[in-house]
Design a protein around this nucleic acid. Sequence first.
DNA 1: TTGTAGGCGTTATCAC
DNA 2: GTGATAACGCCTACAA
Lengths: 339, 339
Amino acid sequence: MSRRAEAGRPPAGRTTIYDVARVAGVSYGTVSRVLNGRPVGSASRKAVERALTSTGYVPNPHARRLAGARPETVAFLHCVPGGRVLADPNVNTLLLDCLRALGDQDIMMVAPVAGDGPADAVTRTLAARLDDPVLLFSAPRASTAVEDLVHRQIPVVACGIPLGHERRVSYVTGDDRDGARQIVAYLRSRGRRRIATVTGPMDLSGGVQRLAGYRDAIDTFDPALVVHGDYTYASGVATAERLLRQAPDLDAIFAASDMMAAGVLAALQQAGRRVPEDIAVTGYDDAPIATSTRPQLTTVRIPWHRFASQLTGQLLRRLDGDDPSGIVMPVELTIRGST
Amino acid sequence: MSRRAEAGRPPAGRTTIYDVARVAGVSYGTVSRVLNGRPVGSASRKAVERALTSTGYVPNPHARRLAGARPETVAFLHCVPGGRVLADPNVNTLLLDCLRALGDQDIMMVAPVAGDGPADAVTRTLAARLDDPVLLFSAPRASTAVEDLVHRQIPVVACGIPLGHERRVSYVTGDDRDGARQIVAYLRSRGRRRIATVTGPMDLSGGVQRLAGYRDAIDTFDPALVVHGDYTYASGVATAERLLRQAPDLDAIFAASDMMAAGVLAALQQAGRRVPEDIAVTGYDDAPIATSTRPQLTTVRIPWHRFASQLTGQLLRRLDGDDPSGIVMPVELTIRGST
DNA sequence: TTGTAGGCGTTATCAC
DNA sequence: GTGATAACGCCTACAA
């Protein structure tokens, strides 16, 4: 006796492939073939299609997965504290593009919902129960969540290099080191000599690499010219104030994100310094805000659309069984009024 | 030959219940029993537990579902235009509570991710691919998404009465009609005679019922005293301005949400009307904002915590196979300075 | 082109 | 208590 019957109320089981087969007068194999677009005689095909709509058949995704079909949903995981809100415009852009591309493949995106708490703990909890392939954003080096996902053999594609897991998860990243190098070199070419930098988080590849590029390009390294931010506007304001105190003679600030650069701009204005006359300012990302500050930001443009398409490409490849791999996108200097 | 093998790389199949059984030296039935907390001899149990950790076993949720196990994830569906952001503080509160309660049952919550577009179209797209039980917020009367979910026999629990589907989806709602009645009656008892109302959307039960309660409680109905909002602050501002124009002699405004009431307050101050001296204002919900306006809002308190626990209760019952049912929560008047 | 036997990893129901 | 053994719904070789 089926459990459903045992439960004591109308069977009401969803209609299965078998029901459809019976109605159509063919074998269930044929129905499956129609469902998967395999060659089928036009007579049977027609019969099946009729039966399909007349019975209101809906496939059971679990049975599908169990039988080895490709996952039809991917999870979007953003490892930021209080991470439910998509404050990051870059992520937003990427997300929309990916959504569209995945939709074309009949794959939907889903985001695990979490309460509040320490970022890593929350992320880990979420990851622990995930079963779908994961699109990963902002995973810090120490993330135990990634560890867990990899161990459970869940395909992961990261945006940016997943520090500590470079070989086990696929990723797409901009060439951060080169971008930073370019922009700092440009500042020097314009005569700037005391160039400070506001870095991103040092447990994210972007933070590390953009700092590395900065060091590549400057002449002599002065610790007083380096302060650490977290990509947010607020941290741009705070770090700029600190820089002005500890290195009042600086003549340029390279912020590792446009959001921070905007904060830097605000702080400088507050302090009565003129941009770019007294101090040149640059950002990174070419986010929407880069053109709405005043002056507009010189920055490094990341090709977001191609970036997104590479991301979904990586994801689809992993779904098809390919091994993890990394892709580095070239970036390009974009000069505006802030320098 | 399995597709995995066919793909030409190490099988690497996740460890199954069979593997565990082999390692533990018991039958896989026993492993399953341990996994599900059924009675098992302490010797075997110990062996299984050891094997479980030594093999790093992780259950396959699809197989589980297919075999009839209870769903371990529910979907959170919010039918608002551009619905990704949780701007609504009430929803937020409910969500956190539900999250916790469901977590206790080892159920996780997931939100389908959508791009932009007309609310109903987006919602429908999302719903169409959902397979988990759904926690539904703000579903308008005409929602085709609900139609689809119900047809596919997916358990749905709504917050508020799902107009048009009252009998086929479970719900929890506050007693909106009674709440509105109470608050308007209170206004009258304080001598107010020209009482206007800013309603919620008329395709949501809250909008309809709170208006009905208003009509129950007033003396004579004057269409000039009724304007429609959409629960947002902005609509509170706009509708208040309209009311002042079309009924300059009003002496009270009952807004169907605290957010709108806050907007009304702002508009009245702008217009130079004193609250409560010239015009009394009330809200609905007892949202956080109700105590941060000035004056604070007289409002109708919905017992959010009990509400949330009823919501998850309804959900769990549906998961256990119970039929859909509705629960109406009593509400209570909360008097503050705005009246 | 079409039907049929496995198998995917669990749960639940049997006998033992 | 414990071990076999059917489901669950679908996909895919393989045989016809």
